[in-house]
Design a protein around this nucleic acid. Sequence first.
DNA 1: TACAACTCCCCTGGTTAAGC
DNA 2: GCTTAACCAGGGGAGTTGTA
Length: 317
Amino acid sequence: MDHTYGDERIAEWLSENQYHPRSPKHGSAACMFFLDDLLHESERFQEAAKNGDIVYQEDYTVGSGESRWNTDLVVGPPEEPIQMEIENDRTIAEGEPEAVWLAIDAKSVMTEHGKARRNRQRDINSFADIMHRHHPGAVTGGLILVNIADRFRSPLRDEGDVTEHDRIKSLVEETVEIFRDIDRAKGKVSPNVDGVGVTVVDHTNLEDGRSTELVTEPPAPQSGDVVEYHEFLEIILETFEERWLTGETPDFESLSENVDLRSALDRQIVELAAVANEVGEGVQEDNLDETVLSRLRNELEETEAVVERIADENLYN
DNA sequence: TACAACTCCCCTGGTTAAGC
DNA sequence: GCTTAACCAGGGGAGTTGTA
């Protein structure tokens, strides 16, 4: 049976649907197409899905407060045994995962590339960092949609205001390079992202009869490039299978004990500040809860423990 | 020195889903 | 149907860097 991959399908989706920067629909569509590609490409992944060993969830939130992140797509073992029937062609059930084994976040750079690309690069790094704080073994991936159309109609701008991009090819080339340069985990359990896939499309968002095209010629990533869509798919699948389906699952507890001390300190300070803020509000409103105070004591103890470890490893050896 | 280009930080406000 | 809150990427603007 013929299979159309996610990069082609998102171009088709844009042809049929207007792009709106404030809508999550394009990101959701890109992630679901990617999930279909995972099922198509890997028998092991498909087998695990059919056996009910893994489920997927869209718009999944990890963490709380400042370190919270809403992830477009996660895959993991089901919290409870699956009882639901699979109602569509997708041979994986939707359900609440007990843990996150795979997390994908979709981002797009459709116009104003110079500004948007830096923001989205920061988003991908933050996404991977936050995800690994809560699920150290999660395989993480960023799906980036980059527009190469020299004209783009943003629904956020006034009627008739069409953005013209004078040097769009070099802008896209630089944008792809930025995502190529992001540090990767390279199969290891690390705070870095495991893969970033860039899909380049030609989409004007104008009702001018022009259909949206998937761009495969440079500056779009070429075969063998780590950001090329199919390479990205392969990297994510390989890492996922090795970590969760075939290989020996890493001992995350021992890994977390050896986590980089600077990251541990940064994380602890953020947690401490968040609880301290809650305590402060309680004091101000004369409504202080004992459990919040208890959490503050715990965070202080944990911060002290990190400081002790830093002292032990950096002063006395 | 002046101007353009770029970077960074943060804000904006339309879309969407959930709750009532 | 209305309200509310979260999400999201574009947009504004100040500061920095590059170059003629």
